[in-house]
Design a protein around this nucleic acid. Structure first.
Lengths: 346, 346
DNA sequence: CTACGTGATGTTTTCGTAAACACGATGTAG
DNA sequence: CTACATCGTGTTTACGAAAACATCACGTAG
């Protein structure tokens, strides 16, 4: 590592911002008074405050976050560990978290992880703790073993859209409810059963959707066909779709997300099986593109903004030690019926 | 604001991490030696280093980033200001920036802006400077007036995918080259001209694409039809598509991004105009879904990962004051021909 | 044998801020 | 008219780490 090499030789003088002391000198007050003005304390004379503000303005003073954090022990930052921001849902969740955090006066320290491995998650956590955050939100990260993260018990954590087999507060969509609504919708249209293209086996959300799909079929007395597995990508949906296209008895498919549903649609087009005439296809997520697929996709709408904001709310509750709120929050998704589902062919 | 109220009453003792002094005491050395071990300096005896490391391990020592930043003047963090992470390209760029930053030992302070206004950008900058970062990457943020940002001249900035009318280093796709390749492709297929569905007028990338579209047509002696404006969303593309569907002479459409192209496709399907039989449609971006559209979309592939990494490279060059690298970096996009484009009907 | 370099370590100082505490001036209640 | 709160402000100190400087033990060249 060139770690030391890049750190040692540099000199600091060129970049220097005015400190409280300099502002204080210019305004003819003590630095403590400047501090009081900076933090909006009310026990400062209006005239004095004005003088200080003027001095700040003139010198272009900016409070030094490091010094403040050092003395207060708070950083005004939350960490977000997220898997694959390329995925629409994760990106939207991150955006919502960032918005909510900013409104609460917190900044967001983002850390993406490529591989869904425990080592990657742990490394991300370590990094965040080095960077010093007041709390951490974990987005769609299946933690294989929470205890091995070696988090200090005092670090507030909220888990979004992930495993619930842990001690931390959790925010997630009600996967069961959403899944049940699509599967029931298809059954009610008259389909004898519904095939499922699942997300990867190590995804908590994918497992929940697959479980609920099966349970709903069983409850309705419908036969359960073998699950096809994808990895959330359109490609994997396409491959599953090619398999399904060769099964004449398949009349309804529930894909675990919209991207895979798109792949299924493509496979059906290529195989000449009309959707929804011969076979119905439904997705999950309701990405912005879904209404414009061919045909427009029936899917389950998820409001990622709500999830993101809830995450911040729960996290701030922990940070500010008013740990009264609910530990688990389930956001209700809603079925959106479009043109890709219809009764089976007679 | 409950600002003061939430800050005043809290006591700090409960959450406390071991400091260097405690580690030093346990290891029987001075805190300076602990510092040397923590920073991997080489002038420490192996036995001593081992003792210190053991003590660190035992106490669960974590360096305090605030204290370090205070004394070094560096924060080990870069800020990213980005517009709408819901958009695929921005999200991907952010992800790449985060990866590259982490590899370089930097963390990423993310700040999303909702409104593409100068005030929003300025506020984001102010916030970031408060949070103290070593440099800033601005992603797809059209700064109306750079000078008004009141950035200290010493703050390193890199602009990605945005306006170039400013003093900062810039990383972007070669919009002209990409656009020219699609438009030429369509003309070479025999289309008399190409219609354009542009992105919003205040987007730099959209303007560049529109300009190049027009220039390419003019250079080829093709007539220039009025531009239709969208806002990057599939909806806006759909609306433009409905207009185009009613123009029998329109045989080729170039949409400024894939989402709008999808909207155009949808409009064509609804109007019963076959793609590419009667009308060809091309996009820009090559989102992962594009190969699975109906029909698979001809588009321009952009490698956002490369852009993100370049951003970090250029930024670190500035931060480390080796300002030798290129000030403008253009990443070459590549035309991807799929099934949505074909020669015009005879 | 001494002077001096070198490597390992300790001591002191500094960074910018906010809390704790101190202080004088003014107001007010008994 | 004194005792005592209150308000505005200054002084001191602590936060944790790292740089600058100091020290000490050794080894070696002159």
């Amino acid at each position: 590592m060139a770690d030391k090499a890049t750190r040692t030789p540099r000199s600091r003088p060129p970049r220097k911002w005015p400190s409280m002391a300099e502002v204080a000198a210019k305004a003819g007050v003590s630095s403590q008074t400047v501090s009081r003005v900076a933090n909006n304390h009310d026990n400062v004379d209006e005239a004095t405050r004005a003088r200080v503000l003027a001095a700040m303005q003139e010198l272009g003073y900016r409070p030094n976050a490091a010094a403040r954090a050092l003395v207060t022990g708070k950083f005004g930052a939350i960490g977000v560990v997220s898997f694959d921001v390329g995925a629409h849902g994760n990106a939207r969740t991150l955006g919502a978290i960032a918005d909510a955090a900013r409104e609460a006066g917190f900044s967001v320290n983002f850390m993406g992880i490529r591989a869904q491995t425990e080592a990657a998650v742990r490394q991300a956590f370590r990094h965040l703790m080095l960077q010093s955050v007041d709390g951490i939100v974990l987005v769609e990260s299946q933690m294989l073993d929470t205890t091995s993260l070696h988090l200090p018990p005092t670090m507030p954590v909220v888990v979004a859209d992930g495993d619930t087999g842990h001690q931390y507060p959790n925010v997630d969509f009600d996967q069961a409810s959403g899944t049940q609504s699509v599967v029931s919708h298809l059954l009610e249209l008259g389909h004898r059963t519904v095939h499922h293209v699942s997300g990867p086996r190590d995804s908590f959300a994918a497992r929940r959707r697959a479980e609920t799909w099966e349970r709903t079929l069983v409850a309705a007395g419908a036969p359960v066909r073998p699950t096809l597995y994808g990895d959330w990508t359109p490609e994997s949906g396409y491959l599953a779709g090619r398999t399904l296209a060769q099964m004449p008895e398949a009349t309804a498919v529930f894909a675990a997300n919209d991207q895979m549903a798109l792949g299924v649609l493509r496979a059906m087009h290529e195989a000449g099986r009309s959707v929804p005439g011969e076979i119905s296809v439904a997705g999950f997520d309701d990405v912005p593109e879904a209404p414009f697929f061919e045909p427009p996709l029936t899917t389950v709408h998820q409001d990622f903004d709500v999830v993101g904001r809830h995450c911040v709310t729960l996290l701030l509750e922990q940070i500010e030690r008013r740990g009264n709120g609910p530990r688990r929050l389930a956001v209700e998704p809603t079925l959106v019926v479009r043109a890709s589902t219809a009764p089976p062919p007679a």
